[in-house]
Design a protein around this nucleic acid. Sequence first.
DNA 1: AGCTTTCGCTACGACTCGTAGCGTATATCG
DNA 2: CGATATACGCTACGAGTCGTAGCGAAAGCT
Lengths: 209, 209
Amino acid sequence: MVTAMHSSTERSGRTGRPRSVEADAAILGATRDALVELGWSKLTLGDVATRAGVAKTTLYRRWAGKNELVVDAVAVLFDELELPDLGSLAADVEDVVLQFARLLERPETRTALMAVVSESTRDDALRARIRSSIVERQKRLVLEGRQRAQERGELPVQSDDEAAARTADLIFDVVAGAVVHRSLVSAEPVDRAWAASFVRLLLNGLTHV
Amino acid sequence: MVTAMHSSTERSGRTGRPRSVEADAAILGATRDALVELGWSKLTLGDVATRAGVAKTTLYRRWAGKNELVVDAVAVLFDELELPDLGSLAADVEDVVLQFARLLERPETRTALMAVVSESTRDDALRARIRSSIVERQKRLVLEGRQRAQERGELPVQSDDEAAARTADLIFDVVAGAVVHRSLVSAEPVDRAWAASFVRLLLNGLTHV
DNA sequence: AGCTTTCGCTACGACTCGTAGCGTATATCG
DNA sequence: CGATATACGCTACGAGTCGTAGCGAAAGCT
């Protein structure tokens, strides 16, 4: 393993000089700034190092390359997403959709997210990193929403655990995929009107409109 | 305008030596080959030129850069998609979903599609190119499917034309987004089982399962 | 013919990459 | 305290890519 976990405290048996945590924060912040100003393709590690007030070699000591660095820099932004309790499943989902859309409107995430996904198609380690630090973390929103909807009686309880897990994955792909496609590919605004019609489709289906 | 249209015949008032159409085909083919072997990030225009048996300068005379070249090289693959008539809306959609998934399994499209979308977030001309040569062209599948379903009585006819257009766009984003997300982000297989449960969700909704 | 544009080729400066080597700084361990 | 171990900043480097310029030759049109 080239790069170990960064966020967690691994202050165990290590004996030498510890890595500066301030440098870590400065580098990730500088990476986001550079993404905003330059975008993915024109971002260089040398530039990030200068912005962070850090030597370029320090960057390479901590991250294997641009891909890994950007994933870490962007991942934290997704943790801001929260599922509110607005009284109904439709309202809850609609709110999260709008939150997610606002996140995708930010230049950092716009330019970085699809780029790292593209890179991950030829790099298994990178794909695993994206999954664990972004995708898998946000499935909590689906699980929480379903739990609440079941308590309200809006959704039936699935007895089979495996089937329930598959359904949750399906919903996640549909919601995240639709919002990403609308926002980044179709390049049309995800506003309240679109979110409302999407949620109606998601809950009632095409034939029950 | 740096690069003019390539596909259409613009054999009008031009007076000098015409551009070689064989070169065009060779370049686009070489681009796809290079995408398969190297992936987006390691693909270089010099390498493509060598593969195509063409001078590097010829490439730059026709395309502004890597982005535009790859969009043209990949766009034609999407025209292979066809909407079959299997008797029911569900069966038709399921089949297209599987076709689309197979297209996304190919290394060329896997690595290129998300990359150019990422680049397009900072390049309006590129975004327009993607829309006109890929996205907008494939909406035909949605329109055709709806038309057929309405004739079968599976879907109601929307009298308001604007509302109908918005619905078509919504469906397109949901279907394409879900398949792309499942295949490229979640990196899980889009098999018959997944396609079936997705179509069930799309037609009946979460609450009518 | 003459004109116009494309072609292949070579060469170029500018830039980025990722690494190596060095001396210095800052921690833990005996 | 000294010894050890690791991280740091800095400089320098070869390798590779970019996009462009300049040239003579080729291939169309009128």
